[in-house]
């Protein structure tokens, strides 16, 4: 092969793209689910659809960056001072669902069977990370519950040691306020086969077995 026609490669090769595109790829690669290779593909896709996709996306992101904020009542991420769920008068004030973050809230909303209010903690108590109640939105939750007095607080936290330790901590605090709490059930997932489940899940499902 003629050396003058060899494609750029190696550490001394000139960059095949301008700094703006390189920066875009670098930032895209930080997104969940994307690595450097998929970020390059996404950037190329955007560059090819500049008018139809890149410009509207940049505009939407700039607007989101300006507007996105945590709801002052529940901590859920939204674009208003009070999120759409807290502002909805049709919601049931007597049921309050506590979740770790907004992704959990979205998951429960996709189910569509809960019509109460939410409170987003922003994480859970963690022995490893040394996270205590003050680092989370627990004081705000307790103050909110003491004022609103919901008939039930659903602790929809992850079925992990940290998630359950947080649930127990909250259950005791709500007991002092005279508010009933519940936690999500654990067991065999829909479509799950026992053979492939881990020992902990099978043990939890066995202990929570019920009559038919």
């Amino acid at each position: 092969m003629d050396s003058s026609r060899r494609p750029n490669s190696g550490p001394n090769a000139a960059s095949p793209m301008g700094p703006e595109l390189a920066r875009l790829i670098e930032l895209l690669a930080r997104l969940p689910g994307l690595g450097p290779r998929s970020a390059r593909r996404a950037a190329l896709h955007l560059a090819k659809r500049r008018e139809a996709l890149l410009a509207p996306l940049a505009e939407a992101m700039a607007l989101a960056a300006e507007k996105i904020r945590p709801c002052s009542i529940c901590g859920h991420i939204d674009t208003a001072e009070i999120c759409s769920i807290c502002a909805d008068p049709q919601r049931d004030d007597g049921a309050l669902c506590v979740v770790e973050d907004s992704a959990d809230l979205w998951a429960i909303e996709r189910m569509g069977a809960f019509q109460g209010r939410y409170h987003v903690l922003g994480g859970c108590l963690s022995a490893l990370d040394g996270v205590g109640p003050e680092e989370l939105r627990i004081p705000q939750l307790l103050a909110r519950a003491a004022e609103a007095k919901p008939r039930e607080v659903v602790l929809a936290l992850n079925a992990t040691v940290d998630g359950r330790a947080t649930a127990h901590y909250l259950a005791e605090a709500f007991a002092d306020l005279g508010i009933r709490t519940s936690v999500l059930a654990q067991g065999v997932p829909m479509g799950g086969e026992l053979e492939h489940l881990d020992e902990g899940t099978i043990a939890a499902a066995f202990m929570a077995r019920r009559g038919l």
């Binding site: 022995a127 902990g200 202990m207």
Partner: peptide, 21 residues
């Protein structure tokens, strides 16, 4: 997984968390 059997027991979980910390 001893923790799986203790998820509903606040004191047991608190001890486990304290031991790890």
């Amino acid at each position: 997984s001893p923790a799986a059997r203790a998820l509903d027991d606040g004191e047991a979980l608190a001890m486990l968390s304290a031991l790890c910390a």
